[in-house]
Amino acid sequence: MIYFIQKIGNRTISFFSKFGRSAIFLIQMLIACVAVIFRPKLLLTQLYSVGVLSFMIITISGLFVGMVLALQGYYILSDFGADETLGLMVASSLVRELGPVVSALLFAGRAGSALTAEIGLMKATEQLSGMEMMAIDPIDRIIAPRFLAGFISMPLLAALFSSIGVIGGQLVGVVILGVDEGSYWSQMQSNLDFYDDIVNGIIKSIVFGFAISWIALFEGYDTLPTSEGVSRATTRTVVNSAFVILGLDFILTALMFGDI
């Protein structure tokens, strides 16, 4: 019994101390971001590995998600004779929800896990302590450029996902199913608002980019320096990112679109 209570206490303390460490890590990281401005080369390399290499998975998934939305939406909407609103349905679901959320989930799997594994391995092979010995702050040099790269790439990737998805929907809806092209675009344009829909979607993706980069880098930085520790940290990155993305998405949606 005592053992059981001890275990609960232990879990609670380690949870909160981890939370505290992550908050301190975030502050250090944000301060270090200022230093990155003087080293744009580092940021560029990270933008390549975080952003450019995620380009393919995002565009291809975006295309297929848009195509499936158009296909499914068409069957339901055509029952009501409302198949001209197909464009509106595809675009609003992509721009508001699916674009930011699905691309963030893919991004966490593609780039977040890679960041954690990279930093975790650097820690396990004592590269980070080696840098500290040389009076180079690893947060300045290693962490901050990766954080900024994730923060910048995420909204761009989400915008790409939504745009490609709308084009994919047009491909299926207009070319294959025969919805009128003019009404596909005009319904979409007249009912979606730039500030309410597009900007809110972009804000969502910025928040997700922030959260994913933070989680991925912290898990890597905080990992046990063993091969098992790195593998667990990588798993935790993907799982926690997915939770945080979906949870934050609900909160943001409630704040932006709901009347709660």
Partner: peptide, 27 residues
């Protein structure tokens, strides 16, 4: 090559945002 690809990535991303602004919504 890396520089070019990053530049291309950023340009395409911004183009996607503009596409959403002018083609999907009615800015």
């Amino acid at each position: 090559t890396q520089d070019t690809l990053v530049g291309l990535f950023v340009v395409i991303g911004i183009a996607a945002i503009c596409f959403m602004a002018f083609k999907i919504s009615n800015l």
